[in-house]
Design a protein around this nucleic acid. Structure first.
Lengths: 220, 220
DNA sequence: ACCGGCAGAGTTGTGCACAACTTGCCATGC
DNA sequence: GCATGGCAAGTTGTGCACAACTCTGCCGGT
């Protein structure tokens, strides 16, 4: 239930500003408002929702300044994943890596924003396997989902195929590092990509500029 | 309500293993179980409580392995406070600094574990003023309260006056750095003290060794 | 003497009804 | 025409009763 709602928010099924009805959601999940409200409260703590008495529970909109700071922090945390309590990849991890690469390849052939977002989320969770530091994992995940929406939000202004290509390249490089057992290198690769992602997504106007003026194909 | 309960847990008014009664607490706060349960749920998310159906809501005990990892992470976060979105100290900050120092001096003259713990908590919050990075502040605070109990828990085995002296020294050094406008240095000082604190609190037996065998005065 | 089971007390989890509150609309007066 | 007051619908917040569950202690059987 928590995961479902979080995904819906992060995949923009509920765009920022959407008003969620507690009774409707409770009915949908076949439960009463009470357990649902606990979930909503948690999502509120995580900064994805805000409820106001007498008004409704509303999906928060993306504060670009806050996003920039969150990205800066995520970048450092990605680094720490490689430095704090590293866990070398096991056989299952390497196998899963192949699955990720083939999912990425399929995505390249049939680009689709939502599928991309899902793959990105899964690959993020994958990357957290390589630290045994549970608090670090928790914090990283929390901050990831806080920023996850921004990508889908800006995708109309971006070149989807190029974004996918960049992501594929990140996965390929990560795979190389992990196959060599170098989790530190994998973390640095991720850090680099978070940094670049911040550059692409947050620089300039904060998304208010019309798509036509941004990221024309020949820029690359 | 949340702050009250969190403080009670962190100040060991509710030692690890204590079973909290929802109805009693609700009565004490003059409310019903419903709003109280939201608070308890949050404390559970933060890792200070765990509720089990039919059993009770129980204060978590201190997992030394997890504490060590949290300390490692806190150390890095303290560093980041100095590097991410630093805010130079203002006049009010410098004034508050004097208050902290005099509180510390009073504590040195009349050592008392609980007062020390309170001062420590307040000074921690003070240190977070010097970054404008809200997510970093949130995360740091969250992790701080997750580890805050350990100090009071081990205080019987430690030399209270010495701990206070060390803390006074930390505050004095921080004050020097902040008066010079060097928030980065202040952050490094804090980082150093978190590291030393980890050494003192977590090395060895995890608190199972009788006090007499530890920290004899002539060791220093 | 020991063991299994059963009942009761006590706890958290859930459902539901109502209170508190906001917002938009409409009628009314100017 | 416009401002204004109030009403109604809809929302979240709260209180309460009951369901679901766990543990303890007792009792009967073996």
């Amino acid at each position: 239930m928590y995961d479902t709602l979080r995904d819906r928010i992060c995949l923009l099924d509920y765009p920022p500003g959407t008003r969620l009805s507690e009774v409707e959601l409770a009915a949908e999940f076949g439960t009463s408002r009470t357990p649902l409200r606990r979930v909503l409260a948690r999502l509120e703590d995580e900064g994805l929702l805000t409820s106001r008495h007498g008004v409704g529970t509303i999906v928060t909109d993306l504060d670009m300044e806050e996003m920039a700071r969150t990205y800066a922090l995520r970048e450092e945390l990605a680094d720490l994943v490689g430095r704090l309590d590293p866990v070398p990849p096991g056989a299952k991890d390497l196998a899963d890596l192949d699955t990720f690469l083939s999912r990425g390849e399929a995505l390249r052939r049939a680009p689709e924003a939502r599928t991309f977002a899902r793959l990105n989320m899964d690959f993020f969770a994958f990357g957290l396997r390589f630290t045994a530091n549970a608090p670090l994992r928790d914090v990283s995940e929390r901050l990831y989902y806080r920023t996850a929406r921004i990508w889908l939000h800006r995708v109309p202004e971006l070149d989807l195929s190029e974004e996918i290509a960049i992501f594929l390249s990140e996965m390929t490089e990560s795979a190389r590092a992990l196959r060599a057992g170098d989790t530190r290198a994998a973390a640095l690769i991720r850090r680099a990509h978070i940094s670049m992602c911040r550059q692409r997504l947050l620089t300039g106007d904060g998304g208010l500029c019309p798509p036509a003026l941004r990221a024309s194909p020949q820029d690359t």
